[in-house]
Design a protein around this nucleic acid. Structure first.
Lengths: 233, 233
DNA sequence: CGCCAGTTTGACCAAGATCAACGCAAGTGG
DNA sequence: CCACTTGCGTTGATCTTGGTCAAACTGGCG
């Protein structure tokens, strides 16, 4: 997604969110947010390690420095849903107050910065502009969540996968070759499908020359128009 | 007795006014949100009337006074997804930047207050506290969107319907008889099901004595524990 | 009373899930 | 250095849930 970061008013109704230019996902920023860096501490996690779990106290938020984090929730019988993948530059854990509703896990090796809630609130009290920035992040998350609900609620398997690939592609600056850091199982649990269906759809896209799969974790977009025809909202 | 439960988030608008007491009786002088009331204008809409449409400029946000609003999006072939229902007390239309991504329609006759963006921005500049309150509301909304994604992505038809009924019930103060203002078709498009499936599930619940259906738009919860066993996350 | 939109029910169908092999590349240890 | 394991990923056969199509029912409302 291009930097559609509304500089002036968030037409959304609130200027506040637009004062800080944070592109939703992978944002490099240099604004008032640097204030937070003073209170952040770097943490590293190994593949599949839990960063926080459901029920933990929500006493901090995080920004991904490198790697990918998955935000997920388990049902009692083991079914898993992955609400989001956070790549470097993205923030997570800002939601939920009190205790965690979802958990956060490292997809591969991950480095994050951890910002304690108490220090964050102190900074915000000193500089209300920061609150607007955090708000903007949340708004973008909400916008993404809405598109994902549409995807889950009303799209077929092929449409979901195509739409997901396009989302990944945009996040990665529309490069031809998409880096897919997560496993097929992760993708399935994010799209509300099974591993097998994700595989079959990818194979079908490959057969139809929409994509090629040079490596297990790379996907090359061969025919973007066709992919959009399938997966565009 | 806090009559304003409004826990459900419109995935789209900032539905819940959790931080704000809207009810006149309890509205506190210190509540910064009352500032908005000065700039709001009341609008009425008839059943199925469009409040705003996809692509419209997002130059205002709304609060529902009475009735129910649905926030929805259409795919090219007519499939519809309803991201949220907003009941009285809830807000919507805050989330779009620039132009509307979803549209808002009146489920039945609806009265709303419309708050222009420009005036809202001015108020926030004068009182940064407003921004912080809105941030919390947004977070609350995001939390609801995440639960809905889980519902769409990993729950069966029965689980979705049960979970939805429980959500409605909580919104309405856990009264035994739930007022269901929207049609079966609206419910289906919200839960990612068909009208027929929604009907069948409701009939099954009725047959199994989990609920009774005294009127087309009322559902009585007969066995809450059983309903929770089916639909609780 | 009869129409009409919304709802309910039934019979059948298909998208995607489940179950089961099989492939394949990256370790691991003898 | 090569068998053996292990963890993903892919593919195929079959089954199930929920969708589709069709018809009957219901409750408002003129």
């Amino acid at each position: 997604m291009p930097e559609q970061v509304s500089t002036s008013g968030a037409a959304n109704g609130f200027a506040p969110y637009s004062l800080v230019s944070i592109s939703p996902a992978r944002s490099r920023r240099s604004d008032p947010f640097v204030a937070f860096e003073q209170v952040g501490r770097v943490r590293r996690f190994a593949r599949d390690e839990e960063i926080y779990g459901e029920g933990d106290p929500a006493d901090a938020w995080f920004k991904v420095i490198s790697g990918t984090v998955r935000i997920c929730k388990f049902l009692a019988d083991g079914r898993r849903y992955i609400a989001a993948f956070c790549d470097s530059g993205e923030c997570f854990g800002l939601d939920d107050v009190g205790e965690r509703v979802f958990s956060a896990e490292a997809v591969g090796a991950v480095t994050v910065t951890r910002y304690p809630r108490s220090a964050t609130e102190r900074l915000i009290d000193e500089n209300p502009l920061l609150s607007r920035g955090l708000c903007e992040i949340t708004l973008h998350d909400l916008a993404h969540a809405q598109i994902r609900m549409l995807r889950l609620g009303r799209m077929t398997a092929s449409e979901r996968v195509a739409n997901f690939l396009l989302e990944l592609s945009e996040q990665q600056d529309a490069r031809r070759i998409i880096e897919v850091s997560m496993s097929r199982g992760d993708i399935a649990d994010h799209l509300g499908l099974t591993i097998e269906t994700v595989c079959r759809v990818l194979s079908a896209f490959k057969r139809d020359r929409l994509i090629s799969i040079p490596g297990l974790h790379q996907i090359e977009v061969l025919d973007r128009a066709a992919l959009e025809a399938v997966g565009e909202t």
